[in-house]
Amino acid sequence: MIPSLIYPGHGIISCRIPSTSTKPAFSTFAASYPLKFLSPRTHSPSLAAVYLLSYGGGLVSGDSITIDIECHPGVNLMLLTQGSTKVFKRRPRTVRSDAMKDMKDVKDVKQKRTEQRLNVKVYSNALIMQLPEPTTCFRGADYKQRQVFRLEDDTASAMILDWFTSGRMSRGERWEFMRYESGIDLLVGENMVFRDVVLLHDQHKNGHENELDLSSTKNMDVKTMLHPYECFATLLLYGPRVFPLAEDILGEFKKITLHKSSKLMGLLWSVSVIYRRETAGTEESMRGIVVKVAGTTTEMVRNFLNNVCLRGLDDLVGENLFARGI
């Protein structure tokens, strides 16, 4: 069950099929500042969609966002964003009492990082499609997000896209944020079937010497490690509803011929299969896939997602609103 009350930075969505209709409808649809939800009209009778937005076009330093979502039996729910999720620079908070008259009495208090959490419950025979635009962290941003998807049973399905860019490339910013952390948990019943965490930060930018530093082993900063790629994506497909898409992607991947080459490839991708054993002693069966993508441009990654990974989405739910955002 999702909470019945909302607090600042909190949103609640519950989507179900009413007893008097076959089209999904929202029984709960509420958000508080800085969150905002919009539900566009869909042409498909089996699809509901929500745009998850924030006032000001992005998340500012210290924002803490939590979104709780329920996708009830038989519902197809697509979650989208309008434009990339922008994360602004981490800034100190100025504290000054009314009694303070001298600027020397003003103190800067370190602000917490910007955080966002998505909690999704998917019931039997339902399909959740989390298809946002990429996250773009500005110079000096400090961002952490966690997405937790709980499938009620093996009949529930999920399509989860998590991708991010190097920053405001038009302004010459490439991997200049302070810290980026993003995690996905997928559970079926009480069993964890998938967990993925991406953590990028340079030790010299934030001074957190005891934290995991991806660049410390080779004495390289993030920009050097990831060059020349500017956009990375993780796409998770799990459950019977998305099995046809997963099979198509896996078929495309098997066509690739691996060979050594000195030529830089503009786009790299790989597929890993998620297996699960039905009962003790039985063979493991494919339940889903994880696609990892790296591209030298955001457009290249987007085109790959639309033309290879999601090209059958219209047949699946009647509309691909993610592709229409191009």
Results as ranks from 00 to 15, higher is better:
3 P>Q: 05
5 L>F: 12
6 I>Y: 10
7 Y>M: 12
8 P>L: 03
9 G>H: 05
10 H>Q: 12
12 I>V: 15
14 S>G: 10
16 R>F: 02
19 S>C: 11
19 S>F: 08
21 S>Q: 13
23 K>W: 05
26 F>Y: 13
26 F>V: 02
28 T>Y: 05
30 A>G: 05
31 A>C: 07
32 S>W: 04
33 Y>S: 09
34 P>F: 02
34 P>C: 00
39 S>V: 12
41 R>T: 10
44 S>H: 15
44 S>Y: 14
45 P>K: 07
45 P>M: 07
47 L>F: 09
51 Y>D: 10
56 G>Q: 07
59 L>Y: 00
62 G>W: 09
68 D>P: 10
70 E>K: 14
78 M>K: 15
81 T>A: 06
85 T>N: 06
86 K>W: 01
87 V>E: 01
90 R>G: 02
92 P>H: 14
94 T>A: 14
96 R>V: 06
99 A>D: 04
101 K>L: 03
102 D>G: 03
105 D>I: 11
106 V>C: 14
108 D>L: 15
109 V>K: 13
110 K>G: 03
111 Q>F: 01
111 Q>Y: 08
115 E>R: 12
118 L>I: 12
121 K>I: 03
122 V>W: 02
123 Y>P: 01
124 S>Q: 11
127 L>D: 08
127 L>W: 05
131 L>F: 10
131 L>M: 14
134 P>D: 01
138 F>L: 07
146 R>I: 04
151 L>G: 02
158 A>T: 10
164 F>W: 08
164 F>N: 00
166 S>V: 09
166 S>K: 15
168 R>P: 02
168 R>G: 04
174 R>L: 11
176 E>N: 10
176 E>L: 13
179 R>D: 02
180 Y>D: 01
184 I>G: 00
187 L>Y: 14
190 E>M: 11
191 N>M: 09
200 L>R: 08
201 H>P: 06
202 D>Q: 12
205 K>L: 10
207 G>A: 09
215 S>H: 12
217 T>H: 13
220 M>A: 06
221 D>S: 11
222 V>T: 12
222 V>H: 07
223 K>P: 05
228 P>K: 14
229 Y>G: 07
231 C>S: 13
232 F>G: 00
245 L>T: 04
246 A>M: 02
246 A>R: 06
247 E>M: 09
249 I>K: 06
251 G>F: 00
251 G>M: 06
257 T>I: 08
258 L>T: 13
274 I>M: 10
278 E>T: 10
280 A>M: 08
281 G>W: 01
285 S>D: 01
286 M>V: 07
286 M>G: 00
288 G>D: 02
291 V>E: 01
293 V>D: 00
294 A>W: 09
299 E>I: 14
300 M>H: 03
303 N>Y: 04
304 F>I: 06
304 F>C: 02
306 N>I: 12
308 V>I: 14
308 V>M: 05
311 R>I: 00
316 L>Y: 10
318 G>F: 12
319 E>W: 13
